[in-house]
């Protein structure tokens, strides 16, 4: 079997529904969050995943978590309209001891996503209130609001930073993807990508930041390429009806360019570019593995390990976290 299950976390340790998993930059620690209002941090002990710490404080579902690039901070977006910031205050660099250091308030409705930029100084949050807030971390763990971006006409589901530039992308219930950049102190919407016919659930940049892939409620995947000459993002590949149900999650590996997706039909797929079929203007991507019944319910999130190639984690509505290996 091309997809091997190499680890699993479940059976009473996890909440009913796990929304998101995020790898620590070291690749050895995994954080998860869900409807039990907590954030769980898992570490490997001998060959088993054990709970290293449980972070409490949110009053409703924690929807998404994000590690800062240096792994010292963890941000968590919650339906309780706040975003919490946690710092690893352990004196031992190998140890896990996260303390709550700040609470970002201001969104009027549920916060859906949070993301750190590549430098670890900027944080973006997005919400059902249709706005994206850009925050800058100051000394003493305080945060200053740099911008409140309006533009989407509906609930914003996800935000993702470009891997190297100070450029933010967002996906929304309004079916579009928007790009945002700071121009002379004011953040403006540079590009709006239309193509999906329903909610955009997740987006992911490739490692060089000139490609973006998006997945949607419309059951399709769209691949976008940045054309520098024209200063435009264009759709170069469509995989429609990739799934029989909404596709909730997508991630583009920065180690080997593979793509993993998680879907509402309980399956996980791996995709790669079909180089033989691609031209300059039209690229082809194909599904190399479709693993049905990956979970016993909707797959909410799939994320590649940042250090170990071909390893990724998934989580779902069945309350389990699974670690997989792609066998080549």
């Amino acid at each position: 079997m091309p997809l091997e299950l190499i680890g699993s976390i479940s059976d009473g340790l996890c909440p009913e529904r796990i929304w998101h998993v995020a790898w620590h930059p070291s690749g050895d620690i995994l954080a998860s969050c869900g409807n039990d209002k907590q954030i769980q941090i898992w570490a490997k002990e001998q060959n088993k995943w054990v709970l290293a710490q449980s972070l409490e404080g949110h009053e409703q579902t924690v929807r998404r978590i994000a590690w800062s690039p240096n792994g010292k901070y963890l941000a968590a977006a919650s339906f309780d309209v706040t975003t919490s910031i946690w710092e690893n205050t352990s004196s031992d660099p190998q140890d896990i001891e996260f303390t709550h250091v700040s609470s970002l308030e201001g969104h009027n409705y549920e916060v859906k996503s949070v993301a750190w930029d590549s430098t670890g100084t900027l944080l973006a949050t997005c919400s059902r209130d249709k706005s994206i807030w850009i925050w800058e971390m100051q000394e003493d763990n305080e945060f200053e609001c740099l911008s409140i971006n309006s533009g989407h006409s509906q609930d914003i589901k996800c935000v993702a930073w470009h891997p190297t530039l100070e450029l933010l992308a967002s996906g929304s219930y309004d079916d579009t993807i928007k790009f945002w950049k700071d121009i002379d102190g004011d953040w403006e919407c540079l590009y709006t990508l239309s193509g999906h016919t329903s909610t955009v659930w997740d987006i992911s940049f490739n490692s060089t930041g000139d490609r973006l892939v998006s997945c949607s409620d419309d059951r399709s995947l769209l691949f976008w390429k940045y054309f520098e000459g024209a200063d435009k993002w264009k759709n170069v590949c469509k995989l429609v009806d990739h799934s029989s149900r909404p596709i909730f999650s997508i991630d583009w590996s920065h180690l080997n360019d593979k793509i993993c997706t998680g879907s509402g039909d309980d399956s996980i797929s791996i995709l790669e570019q079909d180089k033989s079929a691609s031209t300059a203007d039209s690229e082809q991507y194909k599904v190399t593995i479709k693993h049905e019944k990956a979970h016993n319910s909707d797959v909410n999130c799939t994320r590649w390990n940042p250090k170990y190639p071909n390893i990724f984690a998934s989580c779902g509505d069945d309350g389990t976290i699974k670690i997989w290996k792609v066998i080549e």
Binding site: N35, T61, R63, F79, E110, K112, R128, F248
Partner: peptide, 15 residues
């Protein structure tokens, strides 16, 4: 139809 079938929306509503 879109609102009623959006998993995030109806779960948040019930919270």
């Amino acid at each position: 139809n879109k609102q009623v079938n959006d998993k995030e929306r109806y779960i948040a509503a019930m919270e």
